[in-house]
Structures are given as structure tokens and as C-alpha cells.
Computed example of a mutant assay.
Amino acid sequence: MDTHFQGQGLGSAIMIKIETYLHQMAKKGATIGLLAATGKEAFYGRYGYIPRPSETLGNGMCKFI
């Protein structure tokens, strides 16, 4: 990861686009999952994702629509 680009709002802008799409397309009751890099869980937590640790797959996060 290039730290030069951190703190400029790029990740937030991308997440807003993704979240807009998911809320338009995902059916009620859907579960959205993602894999978060270690230490980045708080970023995704701002968008409603919760940690879902897994010994076999590593840390994941999910959100229920």
C-alpha cells in the first residue's frame, strides 16, 4: 500500500460508491462480506461492517442489509 495516498479521502469516496450500489441492488436480508487488511477494520466499521473472525479464512467483516 502506498501511504502517499492515505488520508486524501480516496478510500471513502470509493466506499460511498460501493455502498450506494449495494443499497440499490442488494435485496433486503442480504449479507455483504469483505476481507479487511489487518488494522483496517475501523475504516470499514464506519460503513456498518462488523468483524467476523474465522480461523480458517482469517478476519472478515460483514454487514446485513
Rank of each mutant, 00 (worst) to 15 (best):
M1W: 07
T3E: 14
I16Y: 10
L10T: 07
N59Q: 15
A36S: 11
Y49Q: 01
Q6T: 09
Y44R: 01
Q6F: 15
C62Y: 15
L22K: 02
F43K: 03
M15E: 00
G58H: 12
G39I: 02
M61I: 07
A13N: 01
F5E: 04
K28I: 08
E55Q: 10
E41P: 01
A36Y: 05
H23L: 13
T38C: 08
Y21H: 11
A26S: 12
K28H: 12
E41D: 01
M25F: 11
T56P: 03
G11S: 01
A37S: 05
Y49S: 03
F43I: 02
P53M: 01
F5A: 06
L22C: 06
T38N: 08
I16L: 06
K63E: 07
S54A: 08
K40E: 04
A42L: 09
G11Y: 05
G48K: 07
K17M: 10
I14W: 04
K28A: 11
M25E: 13
N59S: 14
G60A: 07
Y47P: 02
I32W: 08
R52I: 14
L34Q: 00
A36H: 06
I50S: 10
A26K: 09
Y47F: 15
Y47R: 04
L35S: 13
T56Q: 15
F64I: 08
L35A: 10
G58Y: 08
T38S: 13
R46C: 11
E19G: 01
Y47A: 04
M25A: 09
H23N: 12
T20E: 07
E19M: 14
T38E: 13
M15I: 01
G48E: 01
T38L: 08
R46K: 15
G45W: 12
L35H: 15
K27A: 13
Y47I: 05
R46Q: 14
G48W: 09
Y49D: 04
G60V: 01
E19V: 04
T20W: 04
Q6R: 14
H4G: 09
K28R: 13
T56R: 11
I14D: 02
L34E: 02
A13P: 03
G7P: 07
T56G: 05
M15F: 02
K17P: 04
L22Q: 05
L10F: 15
